[in-house]
Design a binder for these strands. Sequence first.
DNA 1: CCGACAACCTGACGGC
DNA 2: TGCCGTCAGGTTGTCG
Length: 272
Amino acid sequence: MPELPEVETTVRGLARVLDGRRIARVELRRGDLRRAFPDDLGQRLTGATVTGMGRRAKYGLIATDRGDTMIFHLGMSGRWRIDPVELGAHDHLLIETDEGRVLALNDPRRFGAVDLVASNVLADWPAFKALGPEPLGGEVSGKWLKARLAGRTAAIKLMLLDQRIIAGLGNIYVCEALFRARINPKKAAGRVSRGKLDALALAIPAVLEEAIAAGGSSLRDFASPDGELGYFSKQFDVYGREGEACRGACPGVVKRIVQGGRSTFYCPACQR
DNA sequence: CCGACAACCTGACGGC
DNA sequence: TGCCGTCAGGTTGTCG
């Protein structure tokens, strides 16, 4: 589910309830997601005050006045529910604020993860150290991409999904960005022209910003934390549109192929 | 270092 | 109605 725009939407929604509040109660309703919750998660969060919230790649960050940052990843099916009317089987972690608001981390497939790291060494956390630059950080230009992808023979689609290259892109927005830049997803990354990479460097932040503005995508089970659905999915040019007409000014039909075991959607007529 | 592939887990959907 | 196969937003580890 959640790529960068969905995580950003989630963090903003959570912040309205959680930022600046004291955590009154933490409840673990099972021992693990993808991996075990930290042993002392409840102990270190309970009674702490949230001093700031943010996002790195597809990770959400919740900092407290005890010098800890809780990191959450939503995996494929994770989401936070705010003040759920009743709890379900997949509400694995509950956080209750001093105002009595309840946040429930719900993740049916349990590909998500929660960690707790000292805030002053957050950048050294192994998973963060390996990440490439943020796609909205202004660092990714055509020139930068050209240098970063030089000599790489893997398909450009697969390179863009690699979080070590750029951190935060996922399957949907890679497909959409490649469409906008008119790049064939199968093209060897090192052989994409500088002109196309210039276009890509503009398309990536554009598509992400538009998705954030629309409140994140709504596929099968995404809703922003307050339950409001995102509407960006209605604007997809290629993702999930196999067999439908290309939205560009071309006679093409959107095709679905498999790369790295995952679906790629593109228009063979205008993405070359 | 690179690339291919499997594994993790549940739910939704389409075909029969 | 129900069973079965396929697919889904991501990451991580192994193997050649």
